[in-house]
């Protein structure tokens, strides 16, 4: 199966420390991938590299079959039009309303959707994340869970082929978490797009994801199914996938 996104031997230093150390990852198209690993292992940085926000020091990022050239603005623009991201700390624009936040990717990039479609799409995606009627509210007036759903709506509002969710359930109660995961898999089932989710919630990831990738120390040490991972030779992979499961 062809890969929607690939990282080849990515290395990156930030303020003098090596944060990505030869990360290699291949995400097969049209599937839901789980990115797991202990806190501080580099999940967020890998996701940022995947969505062209973190130019690596060395190595190659391949998206939709083409290597990404971080110096070519036009190429970057076309690639980014096909990516939707929910950031770990949400990155909602606090000077805009919910509606303007969700509409931002459509309005910023005229090619994303015809102007007359914007309103309909925003309302549809707000319905999908179960926030009907929240369009006019200010971001600060929402609860943490509602903000997270707005961020998910903003990531999925355009017709992106590649959706990135960084910790979509962080700090949420179990019921909302289950709903959010169901929502993501619903969106994926409808569009057949490629999705990657970074989360610590192995139990729930197991219900929606086919492929697991374990990150440790700035590199990907395992890619495969959950069952394969639990029988893996590397004890770090085994313990990580097991221990989290045993706890829940």
């Amino acid at each position: 199966m062809e890969a929607a996104a690939e990282l080849l031997d990515i290395r990156k230093e930030l303020s003098g420390t090596r944060v990505l150390d030869g990360a290699t990852l291949s995400l097969a198209a049209g599937r839901i991938h789980a990115l797991v690993g202990p806190g501080g292992s580099g999940k967020t940085l890998i996701l940022k590299t995947l969505c062209t926000l973190l130019p690596p020091d060395s190595g190659q990022v391949v998206l939709f079959g083409e290597p990404v050239d971080f110096l070519a603005p036009e190429g970057l623009r076309r690639t980014r039009a096909r990516i939707g991201v929910q950031f770990q700390n949400l990155a909602l624009f606090d000077f805009l309303s919910v509606r303007d936040n969700v509409a931002f990717p459509l309005e910023a990039d005229a090619s994303a959707a015809p102007p007359q479609d914007v309103e309909r799409r925003v309302l549809a995606i707000l319905d999908a994340v179960r926030l009907p009627g929240a369009a006019a509210l200010e971001i600060q007036s929402l609860s943490g869970g509602m903000q997270r759903r707005v961020a998910i709506a903003r990531a999925a509002v355009s017709d992106a082929d590649f959706l990135v969710f960084d910790d979509p359930s962080g700090g949420l109660d179990p019921v909302t978490t289950s709903r959010i995961f169901a929502l993501i898999s619903e969106i994926q089932a409808r569009r057949r797009c490629t999705v990657v989710i970074a989360s610590h919630d192995i139990d729930r990831l197991a219900r929606v994801c086919e492929d697991f990738h374990v990150v440790e120390g700035g590199r990907v040490i395992f890619s495969g199914t959950l069952a394969e991972g639990r029988n893996h030779a590397d004890p770090r992979v085994r313990t990580f996938l097991d221990v989290t499961d045993a706890r829940t």
């Binding site: 969505c51 623009r77 980014r80 949400l90 990155a91 624009f93 606090d94 910023a108």
Partner: peptide, 20 residues
């Protein structure tokens, strides 16, 4: 905006933060 990733969110939505 930078430390809360709002600038990156703009970039990935193809909006130029310098201009916007």
């Amino acid at each position: 905006m930078t430390v809360t990733d709002q600038i990156e969110a703009m970039k990935v939505a193809n909006s130029d933060p310098v201009s916007y």
